[in-house]
């Protein structure tokens, strides 16, 4: 049966009515209209749906709504906006690190989790942190450069 469930997304509380086993991804996209996270596989294999839950990157297609209750969820929209982008988003734009961009929000969210835990990642750290994010366009090298640039920018800003 559908239930009323309250979620904390990008710092604000939202109440939705849905089956508790609904994948978080659909709630974000369809109920909260946050279209940044994408459906790629629904199987936890591609990372297109990546968001942060209490600071960890999780595949929202695999997170049932009930298990997100009480957690702090951050989506790409919560990171920064078109008008005031986050350092990572600025770096991805600066490096022109996208082709189709469908994987991009997932990659940026995994990068955000990485930089929060490890502000000075090595090349290998970055590759390992992003390896659950698939990109078919082959934009990987630029995305890696973007993460390096964001790490440097964040350090300089401290």
């Amino acid at each position: 049966m559908p239930e009323k469930i309250t979620l904390i997304v990008n710092g604000a509380a939202h109440t939705v009515t849905a089956e508790p086993d609904t994948p978080l991804l659909y709630i974000l996209r369809n109920d909260l209209k946050l279209k940044g996270a994408k459906f790629g596989c629904g199987l936890g294999q591609c990372g297109a749906c990546m968001v942060l839950m209490d600071g960890h990157n999780v595949m929202s297609c695999e997170v049932p709504l009930w298990s997100a209750v009480g957690k702090s969820i951050t989506t790409i929209e919560g990171l920064g906006t078109l008008q005031s982008p986050h350092a990572l988003q600025r770096a991805f734009i600066g490096e022109q690190a996208a082709q189709c961009g469908y994987c991009l929000s997932g990659v940026i969210m995994s990068s955000a989790a990485l930089l929060a835990a490890n502000p000075e990642p090595t090349l290998d750290d970055i590759k390992q942190a992003l390896t659950r994010n698939l990109c078919r366009c082959g934009t990987h090298t630029r995305m890696i450069k973007a993460v390096q640039r964001a790490a440097a920018d964040l350090k300089a800003a401290k």
Partner: peptide, 16 residues
């Protein structure tokens, strides 16, 4: 590219 800022911020952009 004109489209990348939208895509990097999760601004609705795709048919999806």
């Amino acid at each position: 590219r004109l489209d990348i800022p939208f895509k990097a911020t999760g601004t609705p952009r795709y048919v999806q």
